[in-house]
Measured scan of single mutants.
Amino acid sequence: MTLTLTVPPGAKVRVRITNENGETTEIEVEPGETVTITLPAGSTVRVEVEVVDPDGRKRTETFTLKP
Rank of each mutant, 00 (worst) to 15 (best):
M1H: 11
M1T: 05
M1C: 15
M1G: 11
M1D: 05
T2V: 07
T2P: 03
T2E: 07
T2Q: 05
T2H: 08
T2R: 05
L3D: 04
L3R: 03
L3P: 15
T4K: 06
T4C: 15
T4E: 14
L5I: 07
L5E: 02
L5F: 08
L5G: 06
T6C: 15
T6R: 06
T6L: 14
T6Q: 10
T6K: 09
V7G: 01
V7R: 01
V7T: 03
V7I: 04
V7N: 03
P8V: 14
P8A: 12
P8H: 14
P9W: 07
P9D: 08
P9K: 08
P9A: 11
P9E: 09
P9I: 07
P9F: 09
G10P: 04
G10A: 12
G10L: 09
G10T: 03
G10Q: 10
A11W: 07
A11I: 01
A11M: 01
A11G: 10
A11V: 01
K12R: 06
K12A: 08
K12M: 06
K12H: 08
K12N: 09
V13C: 06
V13P: 05
V13H: 00
V13G: 03
R14F: 09
R14P: 02
R14V: 11
R14K: 07
R14A: 13
R14S: 12
V15W: 05
V15H: 01
V15K: 01
V15C: 08
R16Q: 05
R16G: 05
R16S: 06
R16N: 08
R16E: 05
R16A: 08
R16W: 11
I17W: 12
I17T: 12
I17Q: 10
I17V: 08
I17C: 12
I17P: 03
I17N: 12
I17R: 10
T18N: 09
T18C: 13
T18R: 03
T18F: 13
T18D: 11
T18G: 09
N19R: 07
N19F: 11
N19M: 12
N19Y: 10
N19Q: 11
N19L: 08
N19P: 14
E20V: 04
E20P: 05
E20I: 04
E20F: 05
E20G: 07
E20S: 05
E20T: 05
E20M: 06
E20K: 04
N21P: 11
N21E: 06
N21A: 08
N21C: 14
N21G: 10
G22N: 09
G22K: 08
G22Y: 10
G22M: 10
G22C: 14
G22Q: 09
E23G: 09
E23Y: 08
E23H: 09
E23T: 08
E23R: 07
E23C: 11
E23P: 09
E23W: 12
E23M: 06
E23I: 11
T24D: 10
T24G: 11
T24W: 07
T24F: 10
T24R: 08
T24N: 06
T25S: 05
T25M: 05
E26A: 06
E26I: 04
E26Q: 07
E26D: 06
I27V: 08
I27G: 12
I27L: 09
I27D: 07
I27E: 09
E28S: 08
E28N: 09
V29H: 09
V29L: 12
V29N: 14
V29E: 12
E30L: 05
E30W: 06
E30T: 10
E30I: 12
P31T: 12
P31N: 11
G32Y: 13
G32T: 13
G32N: 10
G32V: 15
E33H: 10
E33Q: 07
E33R: 07
E33T: 10
T34W: 14
T34H: 10
T34K: 10
V35P: 09
V35T: 08
V35C: 08
V35K: 08
T36P: 06
T36K: 10
T36I: 14
I37F: 12
I37K: 13
I37G: 12
I37L: 09
I37E: 14
T38S: 04
T38M: 07
L39R: 05
L39E: 08
L39I: 05
L39Q: 04
P40I: 15
P40D: 11
P40H: 13
P40L: 13
P40C: 15
A41R: 09
A41K: 08
G42N: 11
G42M: 11
G42S: 12
S43T: 08
S43V: 13
S43E: 15
S43G: 11
S43M: 12
S43Q: 14
S43D: 12
T44W: 14
T44L: 07
T44I: 09
T44C: 14
T44Q: 03
T44S: 06
V45W: 10
V45R: 03
V45P: 01
V45K: 02
V45E: 02
V45F: 08
R46M: 11
R46I: 12
R46A: 02
V47Q: 00
V47T: 00
V47H: 00
V47Y: 00
E48Y: 02
E48L: 03
E48I: 04
E48N: 02
E48M: 03
V49N: 00
V49M: 03
V49P: 00
V49C: 03
V49L: 04
V49K: 01
V49E: 00
E50V: 02
E50L: 01
E50T: 12
E50I: 04
E50N: 02
E50C: 03
E50Q: 03
V51Y: 14
V51D: 01
V51T: 12
V51L: 02
V52E: 12
V52T: 14
V52D: 01
V52M: 05
V52N: 02
D53Y: 15
D53I: 00
D53V: 00
D53H: 04
D53G: 13
D53W: 14
D53S: 03
D53L: 14
P54T: 07
P54F: 07
P54E: 08
P54G: 04
P54D: 02
P54S: 06
P54W: 03
D55G: 01
D55T: 02
G56M: 00
R57A: 02
R57G: 02
R57Q: 05
K58H: 02
K58R: 06
K58A: 03
K58Y: 01
R59V: 06
R59C: 14
R59T: 05
R59S: 03
T60I: 12
T60N: 01
T60M: 03
T60Y: 10
T60R: 02
T60E: 00
E61V: 15
E61M: 15
E61T: 15
T62D: 15
T62W: 12
T62Y: 14
T62S: 11
T62N: 02
T62L: 02
F63V: 15
F63G: 15
F63E: 15
F63D: 15
F63C: 15
T64M: 08
T64I: 14
L65N: 01
L65Q: 00
L65P: 14
L65K: 00
L65C: 15
L65A: 00
L65R: 00
L65E: 10
K66H: 13
K66L: 14
P67F: 15
P67Q: 06
P67Y: 15
P67V: 15
P67H: 14
P67E: 04
